[in-house]
Amino acid sequence: MATTSKGLFGSSLARKYWMAVSGLFLCTFLVGHLLGNFQLFVSGEEGKLAFNEYGHFMTTFPVVKVLSYLTYFSVVLHTVDGIMLALQNRAARPVGYVKEKQSANASWASRKMALLGTLTLFFIIVHMKSFWYEMHFGALGLDANGNKDLWTLTVTAFEQWWYAAFYIVAITGLAFHLSHGAQSAFQTLGINHPKYTPIIQKTMTALAWLIPAGFVAVAVFLYVVQPGQNL
């Protein structure tokens, strides 16, 4: 699995750049996604209509469509590149240590990026089957405004304890993944400066926990409030 070409494709550093760029792009996607999710805090008919309106906009507006293709591409790139890197890294040490004390010198999350990434990928597949697939190809009912009723699909999913629990575990995994990945992407892209790096690191670490916290808050809210039962 040795990388043997120079430049922006194929070299070890290039693979890292693509991981960083796609990862950072997916972070911005997460922010957008979260802002959309916040609309779920508004319950009742009003919230339902607004959310479905938003859903309609997100699946039809051309600019968003371009962004969504970029997102799909980033997920695939991040995954494929990540797997290739993991294989390369594994091949670099065919015989391991009998005793290894990794906790002495590196954080848990930084050492478990492949595992956390795999968990996140599994979550994405389940999550897309639950909502994205249904929205695009499923047989969703229409709301009063004639938009596909994504809202009802969403809130009823989270009213089941096991779905909410799975979601929260997966998002926690994502949080750990981000806690290392989000700030490490800057290092990979060569951004390391005595004055700015501490700020970047603090900001990205905060975001790494706040974004997932936002997702979890929505999930907890939906499970506790059970808005689907009240309509």
Partner: peptide, 16 residues
Amino acid sequence: VHQMDLEGFGNCTNTG
């Protein structure tokens, strides 16, 4: 960097 790649070293995941 090219030579480093040819030697079969792994990649950096910024664990520090």
